[in-house]
């Protein structure tokens, strides 16, 4: 069910990772993603894996929860594996039957790509699990604050994102209810060709959009009633300030990145 989706939802426990400045976590995630694209061998991936495990361990988010969050992206992973496995040519050929050939470079690439995707998603998920949407948007607002000079409405974008995150589970649950309400009237969502299926979505999407608009109007009014008038003159419950841990984490990330770089030079023949 949609409402069980864990990806992108805050996991409310207290940990050293939870308490980090969101800017640190944002930058860290970015560095981690970059590192995944630098690595090119098993040693690099092993380092990335250990580093991820360390972060997850420090975050007190159960590993199971993180694995559960991977479910929605399984399809993406299968597609990636499929293409790498069957379409990369090279030597030696491991398996060949009619038009299907699997080569060693293909297999290697498929596995590495899948691993890379799992790491990438787990890493970014860990950030969203340990950072409240508000903190996340605060971090982006402050971290990207320099864009204001170019007339980018940084505060507004940040606010929009945080509201979107808050309403995703609510709307997901609502979609579930609407689907059931229409099924009770004989609607079928998994029958027929693509066009018929797309058409079948109309009775689901119309009520969902109308509800979303209604919620948006209500929310805008409620925010106004609570004196919201944009970012000017606003104070923060969590003013962002780097602490000692943040510096430590930045150092750790740089060290990690250096290790990954060094690992490129190591070759153990796989």
């Amino acid at each position: 069910m949609l409402k069980d989706m864990t990806l992108g939802q805050y996991y409310p426990v207290d940990s050293m990772v939870h308490r980090l400045d969101p800017r640190t976590k944002l930058a860290g995630t970015l560095l981690y993603i970059i590192s995944l694209f630098i690595t090119n061998n098993v040693v690099g991936y092993a380092i990335a894996f250990l580093f991820l495990c360390l972060c997850i361990g420090l975050s007190h988010v159960p590993p199971k929860y993180i694995l559960k969050g991977l479910k929605p992206v399984l399809v993406l992973m299968f597609i990636s594996v499929f293409f790498n496995l069957f379409f990369i040519k090279g030597e030696p050929v491991l398996f060949s039957w009619k038009f299907i050939t699997i080569t060693q470079p293909g297999l290697r690439q498929a596995i590495l790509m899948a691993v890379r995707l799992v790491f990438l998603i787990s890493g970014s998920a860990l950030m969203t699990y340990t950072t409240t949407p508000t903190a996340l948007t605060d971090g982006m607002e402050k971290g990207l604050g320099f864009l204001k000079v170019f007339k980018v409405p940084v505060h507004e974008i940040a606010m929009m994102m945080s509201i979107a995150l808050r309403f995703i589970p609510i709307l997901a649950e609502e979609a579930d209810k609407i689907q059931k309400a229409q099924m009770a009237r004989g609607a079928v969502f998994d029958e027929g060709n693509l066009i018929q299926r797309a058409k079948a979505l109309v009775p689901l999407l119309v009520p969902l959009f109308i509800s979303a608009f209604r919620r948006a109007t209500d929310l805008a009014m409620a925010m106004e009633a609570r004196c919201y008038h944009g970012g000017d003159g606003r104070t923060k419950m969590h003013p962002l300030k780097y602490g000692r841990n943040d510096m430590l984490v930045y150092t750790a990330f740089l060290a990690y990145l250096a290790l990954v770089f060094i690992s490129r030079k190591i070759s153990i023949g796989i």
Partner: peptide
């Protein structure tokens, strides 16, 4: 307002309670 969901801005309760005072500076 009537609908409790549609007047909550933040995803953590204490942050939602602090939303008004934040706006007031």
């Amino acid at each position: 307002f009537q609908n409790p969901d549609n007047q909550m801005v933040a995803s953590v309760i204490e942050e939602d309670v602090g939303f008004g005072p934040e706006n007031m500076g």
